[in-house]
Design a binder for these strands. Sequence first.
DNA 1: GGGATATTGCTATCCCTGATAGCCGTCCTA
DNA 2: TAGGACGGCTATCAGGGATAGCAATATCCC
Lengths: 146, 146
Amino acid sequence: MTLTNSLESRLGYQLRRASSVMMADLSRELADLDLRPAEVTTLLVIAENPDCSQTEVGQALAIKRANMVPIISRLMERGLVDRRRLDGRSHALTLTQEGRTMAAEAVARIDRHENRFTELLGALDADVLFRALPIIRAAREAELES
Amino acid sequence: MTLTNSLESRLGYQLRRASSVMMADLSRELADLDLRPAEVTTLLVIAENPDCSQTEVGQALAIKRANMVPIISRLMERGLVDRRRLDGRSHALTLTQEGRTMAAEAVARIDRHENRFTELLGALDADVLFRALPIIRAAREAELES
DNA sequence: GGGATATTGCTATCCCTGATAGCCGTCCTA
DNA sequence: TAGGACGGCTATCAGGGATAGCAATATCCC
């Protein structure tokens, strides 16, 4: 028997299901690099913003300070990220050469991954998504005010 | 300093961020009912499909058989769901009176929650989302074939 | 200058979702 | 009737995310 499911008409539900499909696909694409999604995003943000700090990366990615710690640790252990003491509190993060290589490979895979999905959507739909999703995201601030 | 983040132009990333904002909002809306998102969706599917089985609910919601177990257990403990043995293997799930009340309240809250977000989007954008998101979701089947 | 305050990184936990492997009893069907 | 499919279940892990609180440092303002 196939069940009815009125949740299908809910935006939040659709978003969650769609997001989870893409996350699963991404994880698979990155599996043999032994990089978790959260680690790749961190790697890419550091690549674009040399000498940024840990909390800055966290802010850009909506990852809490406390949760950045193991991510950075692991990236450093693997020799992908290097850090230099800036002042008594903060560090400046950069990619090692190996980190840059890894980041390039990751970007290539993310491109493939993204293309698999955007190909299924018309250009117009994709445009709307890129306009609408940030609106939903931004609602958080409005929400926090109230 | 504000960091640049080219992930902003990635569909998967936008999806994840938007979805996580909505999930957080939903959780907050449901917090005082002491219902987790996964439990509410289960409750609603049972409400719509009396006498369905546990795995059927799982299939409708993309929740694995094994993960349905604690969800159903908790809903039963709380007296929201009742089940009747169908045959030696399967059970027919229904809502108790209390479950129906809870489901109604949950739907009301989900409505409020959804409206908070859909209000921010034009009707046209919402339409596109409801057309595009299922396409992304459906890509999973295509993906599994390959 | 110095005390209050904020910031940075960190530890230790906890919660929620989801995935896997495998058991057992039941049912269906060739 | 025997083998395979099925439904529920246990146990266990991984991944993302959240909170509370600490120590050291930096900053700001009186």
